[in-house]
């Protein structure tokens, strides 16, 4: 073969030796700092959490009163743990969690669909940006929670109003990050795609969309956080079921240990859903994992 010489010489190029050996590298997700890093680090981290809980236990069980802040009425971990187990056995738990999850995902998915769709168009077309962005810019600084009274007035069903508030919370992070992702596409890549024969639709699907994906997934992760935040607040005001409602109801009924149980659930589900978004984002952008490893 006449190209043998080319091929064999290619393999001894100095740069080739420096290229990282992909297959030998373990897949190391960015959030692995808690998982790996040696047993000692893990032990220190666990001890830190244990110390935090011990401090809380001590402050609460001794009813420590620091004048500015008092722990006299705060249930201790030893009260919260049984309440937690109690709720785990309660049939109401599934209804609370199910309602919250449904609302958060309904609002989040609506916000993701509209935010990504609108962001892709606004990022590519100055005309659409001029027409649509001014009213959105006016609404942007208004926090999702501030929409609660209007939402109650505007939506006959409290279910719809809670989903709307969740939607408002998630919309802007997704929209703005999508626009940013589209606007920061390397114009050289677009020019290259054109000179390789790509038509506008192909440029959009093959260049703009993948190029904007990392920014979009960042927007989705932030949006998921604000969606939970807005949902919990909305449930405290107008819910019948849901984790936020459970937390506030516990306060009203003076089941103070249950307040903390509600908070634990809110934290856990917020964390789980952002892990879910991050994993989905990582699956959509496999090339970024290889770039991270280069540094």
């Amino acid at each position: 073969m006449s190209n043998q010489a080319v091929a064999s010489r290619g393999n001894v190029e100095p740069g080739a030796a420096q290229a990282p050996a992909l297959r030998s590298r373990p897949a190391a997700p960015a959030s692995s700092r808690f998982a790996v890093g040696g047993g000692r680090h893990a032990a220190i981290k666990l001890a830190s959490v244990a110390a935090f809980i011990a401090l809380w236990q001590w402050l609460s069980s001794n009813h420590v009163d620091l004048k500015i802040i008092t722990f006299a009425n705060i249930p201790a971990p030893s009260d919260v743990a049984p309440a937690f187990l109690n709720l785990l056995e309660s049939p109401k738990l599934a209804a609370h969690i199910g309602n919250s999850l449904w609302r958060v995902f309904a609002g989040f998915i609506a916000a993701a669909a509209l935010g990504i769709g609108l962001g892709l168009i606004v990022g590519r077309s100055r005309w659409v940006a001029d027409i649509l962005m001014p009213p959105l810019e006016i609404l942007r600084p208004i926090p999702g929670v501030a929409w609660i009274p209007v939402a109650i007035l505007a939506f006959p069903s409290s279910e719809a109003s809670m989903i709307f508030i969740t939607f408002m919370g998630a919309l802007f992070p997704v929209l703005l990050n999508t626009i940013h992702g589209v606007e920061s596409v390397d114009p050289r890549l677009i020019a290259t795609a054109r000179s390789l024969g790509a038509k506008p639709l192909s440029i959009f699907l093959e260049v703009i969309l993948p190029s904007a994906t990392p920014s979009i997934t960042t927007g989705l992760a932030i949006g998921m956080g604000t969606a939970w935040f807005c949902l919990v607040t909305a449930e405290m005001i107008s819910g019948e079921f849901g984790i936020g409602y459970f937390t506030w109801e516990s306060y009203s009924l003076q089941n103070y240990a249950d307040i903390l149980v509600g908070m634990v659930f809110i934290g856990a589900f917020g964390m789980l859903s952002s892990v879910f978004i991050k994993q989905a984002g990582r699956a959509l952008t496999p090339w970024l994992a290889t770039q991270e490893k280069q540094h």
Binding site: R9, G10, G15, A19
Partner: peptide, 30 residues
């Protein structure tokens, strides 16, 4: 890819190649 001497590298991402290899891919693509 073989013609530009990059046989075996076809499943890499560009960021996993050296500068010279990236230019070979560029030439092959054109």
């Amino acid at each position: 890819i073989k013609l530009v001497g990059l046989g075996g590298f076809e499943n890499r991402y560009p960021a996993q190649l050296s500068g010279g290899m990236q230019q070979r891919v560029e030439i092959a693509r054109v």
